[in-house]
């Protein structure tokens, strides 16, 4: 039997930030693996180090100890094989929509015609090709996030990292974007790590949920959701998982700074 190589592997990863006054350990002894084409939701309260995990994978942050491996090699610096989508979209306001999507391609040696075609394809994929000449400020929040996702996919990353991507959107837009991201994921299969603090969002989207919490943050719970999509929250399997997650999240001593 062939052993499957993890796409991303955390080995005893700890991360601390140094303030002027004190040292804060955000993550401690993290161990987990993510496999190719998995849709993993990282769930936890704010300040639990969820975003730090994405920063480590993206390559913005280096661990103080332990290893973050991508295709079995330690991650050194940011690279377009692992693109990150931000909650505040981080689109370039001086570029129009199409040029935003094409940005990553301009770093590669594509001809401008080729990168234009590729960008249009991805803009089409998120249903916004009619807006290619618009400026960023003319788009709504949901549309901006679609552009940001198209931009991240256009460089054909192996791993797509999403940091609370729908956190700034209203409930209705948020729900349609959840459907949208699943559609995109089924069309362009990628490894996805999706950070959220919404239990329902994680239950709706993930193949797997990693619950992060505590101070310093550790993985409290790691569960696979073998329920086909679209998911019905009344499904007994989901109800069980939901209760297990909530139980982990509301253990009071997690928020009192005590170690478990």
């Amino acid at each position: 039997m062939i052993e499957l190589q993890p796409k991303i592997k955390f080995e005893n990863v700890s991360k601390s930030f140094f303030n002027t006054s004190k040292t804060e350990t955000v993550l401690k002894d993290l161990n987990f693996s993510v496999f190719a084409e998995e849709f993993v939701c990282i769930l936890g309260p704010s300040g639990s180090g969820k975003s730090t995990i994405l920063g480590l994978i993206a390559g913005f942050i280096k661990p103080n100890s332990g290893l973050v491996l991508f295709n079995s090699k330690p991650i050194q610096r940011p690279n377009s094989s692992r693109t990150l989508v931000f909650q505040d979209y981080a689109l370039f306001p001086w570029l129009n929509i199409l040029d935003n999507v094409a940005f990553g391609l301009t770093t590669k040696n594509h001809s401008s015609k080729k990168s234009r075609e590729v960008s249009l394809d991805y803009l089409n994929l998120v249903g916004l090709s009619a807006y290619k000449d618009y400026s960023v400020s003319q788009l709504s929040g949901g549309m901006k996030q679609r552009v940001a996702i198209a931009r991240a996919l256009a460089v054909e990353p192996e791993v797509l990292l999403l940091d609370e991507p729908f956190g700034a959107l209203d409930q209705h837009t948020r729900e349609s974007m959840q459907v949208e991201i699943l559609r995109l994921w089924s069309k362009a299969k990628r490894t996805v790590l999706f950070v959220t603090h919404s239990v329902d969002e994680a239950l709706k989207l993930g193949d797997r949920i990693l619950v992060v919490g505590g101070k310093p943050g550790t993985i409290l719970f790691d569960t696979t959701i073998a329920v086909s999509r679209p998911r019905d929250f009344k499904n007994p399997k989901l109800v069980t998982i939901r209760n297990q997650i909530l139980e982990k999240l509301i253990q009071p001593d997690l928020f009192m700074g005590a170690n478990i």
Partner: peptide, 26 residues
């Protein structure tokens, strides 16, 4: 905005490309 620089880096921009296309423009 730090996220603009991070967004550019995660899309593969670095060095001179990052300066010319993001830092100066911003």
């Amino acid at each position: 905005p730090p996220n603009l620089i991070r967004a550019a880096q995660t899309l593969g921009s670095k060095g001179l490309h990052l300066y010319r296309n993001v830092i100066i423009k911003a």
